[in-house]
Nucleic acid binder design. Structure first.
Lengths: 227, 227
DNA sequence: CGAAGATATGAGGGATCATTCAGTTTTTGG
DNA sequence: CCAAAAACTGAATGATCCCTCATATCTTCG
């Protein structure tokens, strides 16, 4: 994300004029298009150039080689995704866990499902790449966001929040990916989406150590504020 | 799996002599080795031949092109994996759900973690491939195995078994993959493994509609065998 | 305006690779 | 033991592709 990419994958230069920034956008979009129509194996810099209405040379003004283009593309995508998730988490600060889980799963699910072809293309393109730094940075950002959200839950406290948080993230992201890989029909896809929410809630309920939320308050005497 | 691959990916011929079968084994193993050391992008048929101690031509005796080699490799791997899972499921027929879930998760996890590098290499190689038939066949086999296992649970009945089954499979497989992608340190990996078991159990408990197992039997009168 | 800087062009060099096939070696079955 | 079948060999072919660089066009701003 914000941290600099490995030097061998760094972009060659940043755009200084508006024209250049526009060119970059076109190149990224064209890359996705070619990925979609020709697959990662047939993606060549020349083809990307053609589709972008730009010559090969232009691409090499900004990227030292094809890998760097892939890298930047995924970086962009993951950046946007992380931001979306962070926003969703912030919006649920202090909400009951049910709401949190629902928001988290649904936000992620929708972000991926909005343009399923693109998502699939990117999932595939990542394999061409040494993507650990990207995944790491993304994971760190999202872990922080979900962790602080969960910590703010009024109706649950977790003995080992980091582990719970890691498990939740791994499960949600993995399940969505797996659903993509199986290319589930819409009905089943929706079903798994809903079940994933139930599952996450059931899990959090099972591992929370105490509760101070509405459900509990109504069942027992108020606790004196000072012992 | 057993159903024939798409014609363009079919092996060119089957080995008829023991020597040939051995050669095929060596080729597959060499493919994995090259995948490991050079990555999928640098995997060339010549390199595979060298590593296998066999000439390029030999590879083309059995596979019409590189893709078919990839395909067969993954087919082999998924076949073995499906078989392992089927065996594990059969062994848990009639067991309480807790045992089932634990066996399922752990079997899958161990199968993947036994040679993590190989698993990672294969995860990557699949992206080079039109792998939907493979995934489909694998999913069908495993769904059948887990489905019949779950149906035999003495302590749970599920209103919508297919959906529960699909959710469980998607979650488990996805989570493991996600854990791989994040390249978790051993301790965290183990933790997620355990939490995944807890989560799956919590989910099944939450969605089961009635129970007829030990816990319940002790709490109510025996039901007359015939109304 | 006009010079300096930024951006774009695209043909071609150089390298890599997938795949073939004519010929050789090994195995089998009679 | 020998002929036919099976398996193996690896140099050569043709195609593809990455990336460079000499040149041209556009933008900025003093």
């Amino acid at each position: 994300m914000d941290q600099t990419p490995p030097s061998h994958l760094k972009p060659r230069k940043k755009p200084r004029q508006a024209r250049a920034a526009a060119t970059l956008d076109v190149i990224f979009e064209a890359t996705i298009q070619v990925l979609l129509s020709d697959g990662p194996r047939r993606l060549t810099t020349t083809r990307v150039g053609e589709r972008a209405g730009v010559s090969v040379g232009t691409i090499y003004q900004y990227f030292p080689h094809k890998q760097a283009l892939f890298y930047a593309l995924n970086e962009r995508y993951l950046d946007a995704l992380a931001e979306t998730l962070e926003k969703a988490c912030r919006a649920q600060h202090g909400a009951p866990i049910e709401k949190m889980v629902e928001a988290l799963v649904t936000t992620y699910w929708n972000a991926k499902m909005e343009r399923p072809e693109v998502t699939r293309a990117l999932y595939r393109s990542v394999a061409e790449l040494d993507n650990e730094p990207l995944i790491d940075a993304f994971a760190r950002r999202v872990d922080a966001a979900t962790g602080s959200m969960l910590a703010s839950a009024p109706d649950a406290v977790f003995a080992d929040l980091p582990t719970v948080n890691l498990t939740l993230a791994t499960t949600i992201f993995g399940t969505v990916r797996s659903a993509f890989e199986r290319n589930l029909p819409a009905a089943e896809s929706r079903a798994v989406h809903m079940q994933l929410i139930r599952m996450s809630i059931a899990y959090l309920d099972a591992v929370k150590t105490s509760s101070a939320g509405a459900a509990t308050l109504s069942e027992r005497e108020p606790v004196p504020l000072v012992g």
